[in-house]
Design a protein around this nucleic acid. Structure first.
Lengths: 335, 335
DNA sequence: GATTGGAATGTTATCGATAACTCCAAAATA
DNA sequence: TATTTTGGAGTTATCGATAACATTCCAATC
């Protein structure tokens, strides 16, 4: 590999002069600047970011940890983060925890050894607290995405899960549904708790009773075991509508209902949080509370970079992005 | 930040001894090993990968460049690559070229300065040749994914675009369609050429004429301008079926047909290459030639790591993964 | 002609880790 | 007892870049 010393030798100057040309610092005569530049071209010089990071104590790398790279919500978020990071001259190191605290820990270790300048973190759950504290202990600027973690204060970009859930459930109620089930994510994830809260609130505001037999807890992933759905469906007074707490849960629900020969929305309406990405336009089907995923990423990066560049430490900022109710054909009047 | 010197001082040993403990090399008495380990724990030591890479001349980072992070084909591929890389102790640096040669070049520069140990590369098109040559010039092991680039030899993991296209078109022909349009990706991408070839072959094998008015060229992205679709539809003898060269083109096609009030599949059947990911199961709609995306990533990493670890240089290997025809409801008998 | 000042460039130390070599003392061997 | 071996360390140089300080050189000023 060609180094600045190789360039320096060939140009008959010192390495420092080459460094100055590269970084446009200090004073260099136009003549030597041109000569050095020409030789760098000729020799295909590429700076070594390791060496540079070692002295500068910064890597210009940010890390983005998401919990599911196959979920359109997170890939769209990633696009937003990527665009914003690149605009500011940062590289982005992606990680995918798969909603799994062990994988998450591995990524945290990797961020530490890679000495990233900052981290955008969508925590797998409340158990992420330990990992966040590790990052904080090492003074790594940190922005939480999508989910908060009790006991940890920092900058955050969140959605309004409670409000979105309330809107979805009220939409169902306005269609005449009274028995509405909630297929929720794991309660150790803040959004699942907030969506439950929004669900309860909607019921209360409309004088409907809360029945915990109508609430099931899964993970935020396409589920395989749908047996607990059967308990729901076999109730004396089964639900006429289901609120799935995210897009992949909705997919699981619909798949399971189809398998049991239950037509959607004719017999049961289904609504959910988060849209399905591009593919949702080919069959505009699911009624959803869509979140501005791209903004999550872009704003997250913005907060992060501001924090990196000005460590002075104003108060932590919490940005809350409202979801948008999009009514499609998966929900209809109770028959 | 805590360094091995801090550890060394506190443990009353030399830095070298600490390094030996970390890497399990050389001979260390059990007593000092335990002492050093304890102190590393106490001080929250984390190795600095920059410093290590600088001397070892390897980063244990592989780079994966894809062309569209929002496309389920590529995110699934990324999962496969990620899993395989992690299993082998490598980190994965993602890049997203957006089918754009300029962005691609930026990522190539980034890979060079980051001194990644190898690159998994889905080229944006034939114009990627220059970038590939740059990487090769710097001796970076390289595996091409999904698309080949004329004039560049290396290890590759490809799909069988021609065969898949032929199967899709023959499926349409078997349903009685005779006027079949092809909405293709840009011809500067190898898969688009192969899909065109498969399309032509299917026609020929079935004694149908090739009519270039039935063929339109887009990019492999959800398109905005669908005016050229109008030319197609306004032909005297318009198509009764459309073969879209990838999933996002199919989405564009269906969206455009809907906007014009043309029912799918009643009036026009639509089939495409690549599946839509998880969301395709909620409304099993599009007839597709599905590719084993996860394998693309996993095998790609495998080839890459083999190449890194044994530079001796056997012949380049080309793995070709066959697509699977999945018939759903977007295609039906010609009415 | 001596002095000063700034533009242009060079020297040295440093970032954090590891390779290669050296050293020393205790144990094994002659 | 003298000599070799070897286990368990330490020293020094190095990776490629940059910061901080040092130096040269020439033109402007007295």
């Amino acid at each position: 590999m060609v180094t600045i010393y190789d360039i320096a030798k060939k140009a008959n100057v010192s390495a420092m002069t080459v460094s100055r040309v590269i970084n446009n610092t200090g004073r260099i005569s136009e003549k030597t600047r041109m000569k050095v530049k020409r030789i760098m071209e000729e020799m295909n010089y590429v700076p070594n970011s390791m060496a540079r990071s070692l002295v500068l104590q910064e890597t210009k790398i940010l890390s983005l940890l998401i919990t599911d790279i196959t979920n359109p919500f997170y890939t769209t978020l990633a696009r937003g983060a990527e665009d914003a990071a690149k605009r500011c001259g940062y590289k982005l190191l992606f990680g995918n925890s798969d909603e799994n605290l062990i994988k998450e820990k591995e990524y945290v270790d990797m961020m530490l050894t890679a000495r990233v300048d900052g981290v955008l973190f969508a925590p797998a759950g409340d158990g992420s607290l330990e990992h966040l504290n590790t990052l904080r202990k090492h003074n790594i600027p940190l922005v939480l995405l999508d989910r908060e973690v009790p006991g940890f204060e920092t900058d955050m970009v969140l959605g309004d899960s409670k409000d979105g859930a309330r809107k979805l459930v009220e939409h169902l109620i306005s269609l005449g549904h009274k028995r509405i089930a909630l297929i929720n994510g794991a309660l150790q994830v803040s959004t699942a708790r907030h969506r439950l809260a929004g669900y309860k609130e909607a019921l209360k505001l409309n004088d409907l009773p809360y029945d915990d037999r109508l609430v099931a807890e899964f993970g935020y992933k396409p589920f395989a075991d749908d047996s607990s759905l059967d308990e729901l469906l076999q109730l004396d007074d089964p639900p006429t509508a289901i609120f799935a707490a995210n897009n992949f849960l909705a997919i699981g629900v619909i798949r399971a209902l189809r398998a049991r020969g239950i037509p959607v929305p004719e017999q049961i309406s289904v609504v959910c949080f988060d849209d399905l990405g591009e593919s949702s336009v080919i069959d505009p089907f699911l009624t959803v509370a869509a979140q501005p995923a791209y903004q999550f990423g872009a704003l997250g990066i913005q907060l992060l970079i501001e924090r990196i560049q000005d460590k002075s430490g104003e108060d932590y900022r919490k940005i809350i992005l409202p979801p948008e109710l999009i009514v499609r054909s998966s929900s209809r009047e109770r028959s």
